[in-house]
């Protein structure tokens, strides 16, 4: 899979059944061990949740989440909102002969159109026009 230039995309093959991987992706006690601390997670589309990491300079440690798609044990999609950054995280689990192929993608490193929360920073749109291609070209 080729990542679009506004996305983070990672894939790995795991020697564990999709049901086991799904638990690690959705149970707060397990999620807290590999991703970020989370107290509770109601597995239904539209439900909101909060990852609360250690505050750092410039970041209060909060990641606000909102479930978009919940299809155990194959697909999990949630909004990942940190301050001004509003992105979408997608996990896709595919069974393999040896376990699970896990694909993770974070997309939407751009301001939401129509939102004007803090002025100019939201006025630009990487996805519009050719700027996203420009970015890819200059980053190459």
């Amino acid at each position: 899979m080729t990542a679009p230039s506004d996305a983070v995309a990672l894939e790995l093959d795991l020697a564990h059944a999709p049901q086991v991987v799904w638990r690690a992706l959705t149970e707060p006690a397990l999620l807290s061990q590999w991703l970020l601390p989370i107290a509770e997670l109601e597995l239904s589309p539209g439900a909101t949740f909060l990852f609360q990491a250690e505050p750092q300079p410039g970041w209060d440690g909060r990641v606000n989440g909102r479930l978009v798609e919940v299809e155990p044990p194959s697909r999990l999609v949630y909004a990942w909102v940190v301050g001004d950054l509003d992105t979408l995280v997608t996990f896709t689990l595919t069974p393999t002969a040896t376990g699970t192929h896990l694909a993770m993608q974070q997309t939407g490193f751009k301001p939401e159109q129509g939102r004007n929360l803090a002025g100019a920073r939201y006025g630009w749109n990487m996805m519009s026009g050719r700027l996203v291609e420009v970015l890819a070209r200059l980053a190459a």
Partner: peptide, 11 residues
């Protein structure tokens, strides 16, 4: 995801 792999090994 590296931490996830290690966690899965324990689980």
């Amino acid at each position: 995801l590296e931490r996830l792999e290690r966690l899965l090994e324990k689980m």
